[in-house]
Amino acid sequence: MTNPNHTAHEPDFDAVTGQSTTGHSWDGIRELNTPLPRWWLWTFYVTILWSIGYWLVYPAWPLISSHTTGLFGYSSRAAVAVEVQALEQRRDQQAAGLKTASLEEIKASPDMLRVALARGKASFAENCVGCHGQGGTGAPSYPNLTDDDWIWGGALKDIEATIQHGIRWTQNADTRMGEMLAFGRQGMLKKDEIEQVVDFVRSLAKLDTAKGANLAAGKTLYDANCASCHGEAGKGNREVGAPDLTDAIWLYGSSREAMIESVHNGRAGIMPAWASRLDPVTIKALTVYVHSLGGGQ
């Protein structure tokens, strides 16, 4: 194709610069010939040769069902695997002290504490946030791990036992067991009796009660049905996982409806036992991490 604006004629010299022109003229504008240095061209050839080297050394060409693997069998996946292994080794070294140290010793040593918190945080994000939420904030029916209310105890060894054996996790022999009976569903308390006992419990926690509630009748019912686990003063019993009914923290909500539902249907939250899934060092780290979330006792 010929461009009508383009003419080619003899290369000549440009009077202003004294430089030769390429002989190309576009709309009367001529092009100075400013040749590139020869080494520039060679550099370009070298980059082409270099790319051939890449084809040989690295995986390059797709084949029908695989690809060329390169002379040294390099693959980025294998390289990552090596790095991951090295990282795990380094982590094991860092956590070596955790293996033999007691939970209290870990908590008291700044270096071990730092490692345990980092490891615990990572493991918590992997295994625990599904129920207990990011940061251990919990949700209705999943305990908040940042507060100071512990159903099964908030000391280091209590937390460790809970993580190891779980709660109502029947596959584990040492699991924590305790039952809140379904008083309504099983016909032990009638509807108005449930309301009376709930109003009494609400008065213990200084929550508002229904107008004209018969607290005395509620107390009688409480003493007969509830005090064996929750205690006469309603302070709860960690041996059987009976929560404190006098504080400001309510796992299933503090509304009258939620409490009536608890008494009617009972409650039995389940937590898996982690001893079979996580190694002891990780469980120690998790224990220290949960203990440091704010509620540790």
């Binding site: 080619a8 040749p35 590139l36 240095p37 020869r38």
Partner: peptide, 19 residues
Amino acid sequence: MTSNAAIPDEDGPLYVSAK
């Protein structure tokens, strides 16, 4: 096409060796 075909011969060198 005739004019284009003539260009390569008339062009100056595109690369120069460094002196």
